Amino acid sequence: MNARTEPAEADTEPGAPARPPLIREFLLVAGLFLVYKLGRRLAMGHTGEAYRNAGRVWHLERTVHLPRETAVQSALLHGDTLVHVANTYYATVHFPATLAFLVWLYLRRPAHYLWARRVLAVLTGAALVLPFTFPLAPPRMLTGTGLVDTGRVYGPSVYGPPAGDHLSNQFAAMPSLHFGWALMLAIGLIAATRSRWRHLWLLHPLVTLLVIVGTANHYWFDAIVATAMLGLSLGIVHRPRRAAGTAGRGTGRLGAPEPVLAGAGR
């Protein structure tokens, strides 16, 4: 087929699912976000246990010689601008990036959209179990660690005082869906595109990891558990097959991430 008439890497495999109805998908995705928020709220009321678990996680990380979260935070605190950018990234990128990822897949890769939406649903559903069984206070709430609550001190912060915060459960640090969703975004874009630069999407979860740890909102183990849960979710939900006609193309129009995707990864 002539290069000018060949479609730009779409889901063209015979038998590939058609784009699902927009209204239904809007309701399903909105429901996923709602379950994520409400499910964490239902797991409140375990403050004492959450602090005890936080101490256990902190000491376990030191036992297995993971780097101290304070080392990452010290790098952020070299300047007010850097820590403010990290706080802003934590507060504003998580939901919009995931939504932009799903919208782009829905419009351009329907089969990969269905796969990614199902993986995120399984991951989120599994993650909501842990706050009931293992409530965990974030490192910013621990005393004696040398960590600073960067959101409260430097802003912006997405959390109020735990006792008066009616929008989120601050004792549901494990797993980190900030990291789990960011990693799925990168995996989904790598799977759905053929750009030679597509692996650069892994910078998004890497930056997210440094941000969630450096701002003292999560432990290393929160990201490790999220990664394990995502691995199980990917094992449960089968990845769509790519059409043979799109294999091996890594140049031309897809030689770099497309502009709409670049917006999702920032």
Score class of each variant (00 low, 15 high):
Leu232Trp: 03
Leu189Ser: 10
Leu200Asn: 04
Leu77Ala: 14
Ala10Ser: 13
Leu183Met: 10
Gly146Ala: 05
Thr215Asn: 07
Gly79Ser: 14
Leu99Asp: 15
Gly15Phe: 01
Arg56Pro: 06
Val72Ile: 13
Thr246Asn: 09
Val148Gly: 11
Phe95Gly: 09
Leu130Met: 14
Tyr106Asp: 00
Leu77Arg: 09
Gly265Asn: 08
His204Met: 06
Val29Tyr: 15
Leu123Trp: 05
Trp201Met: 00
Val57Gln: 07
Gly180Ala: 11
His94Cys: 06
Ala191Cys: 10
Ala163Leu: 13
Leu167Ile: 13
His46Val: 06
Gly160Ser: 03
Gly15Ile: 04
Arg249His: 07
Pro162Gln: 09
Lys37Ser: 12
Gly48Trp: 05
Tyr106Trp: 06
Leu27Glu: 07
Ala226Asp: 03
Val153Gln: 09
Asp11Asn: 03
Ala8His: 05
Ala192Met: 03
Leu200Ala: 13
Leu185Ala: 08
Ala50His: 02
Val83Trp: 04
Ala226Thr: 04
Arg253Tyr: 05
Leu120Val: 02
Ala137Val: 07
Gly79His: 09
Met1Thr: 15
His84Ile: 15
Leu177Thr: 08
Ser157His: 04
Ala127Ile: 04
Arg253Trp: 13
Ile187Leu: 14
Thr81Asn: 09
Ala8Trp: 11
Gly263His: 11
Gly263Ala: 15
Ala121Gln: 08
Leu32Trp: 05
Asn217Gln: 13
His46Gly: 00
Ser233Pro: 04
Val35Ile: 11
Pro7Asn: 08
Val158Pro: 06
Pro138Met: 12
Arg40Glu: 08
Val122Phe: 00
His199Trp: 13
Thr251Leu: 15
Leu22Ser: 03
Ser195Arg: 06
Leu34Met: 01
Leu210Trp: 01
Gly252His: 08
Arg19Ser: 00
Ala116Ser: 06
Glu61Ala: 14
Tyr90Gln: 09
Arg249Phe: 10
Thr133Lys: 07
Leu22Gln: 12
Tyr219Val: 10
Pro96Phe: 05
Pro156Lys: 12
Leu209Phe: 11
Ala10Met: 15
Val29Asn: 12
Thr251Gln: 12
Trp115Tyr: 04
Thr81Gly: 02
Arg253Cys: 13
Thr124Asp: 12
Pro67Thr: 09
Phe33Ala: 15
Trp220Lys: 04
Leu102Met: 01
Thr227Ala: 04
Tyr106Leu: 01
Val207Pro: 09
Pro138Ile: 06
Gln170Tyr: 13
Trp58Val: 13
Asn2His: 12
Pro135Asn: 01
Gly231Met: 04
His178Tyr: 03
Val103Phe: 05
Ala10Cys: 11
Met1Trp: 12
Thr70Gln: 12
Ala163Ile: 06
Phe33Glu: 13
Val207Arg: 06
Ala243Tyr: 08
Leu34Gly: 03
Asn217Tyr: 11
Pro139Asn: 10
Gly160Met: 12
Pro131Tyr: 06
Leu209Cys: 04
Arg62Trp: 07
Gly39Glu: 09
Ser157Ala: 08
Glu9Gly: 03
Arg249Glu: 02
Ala228Phe: 01
Ile23Lys: 07
Arg241Asp: 08
Pro175Asn: 07
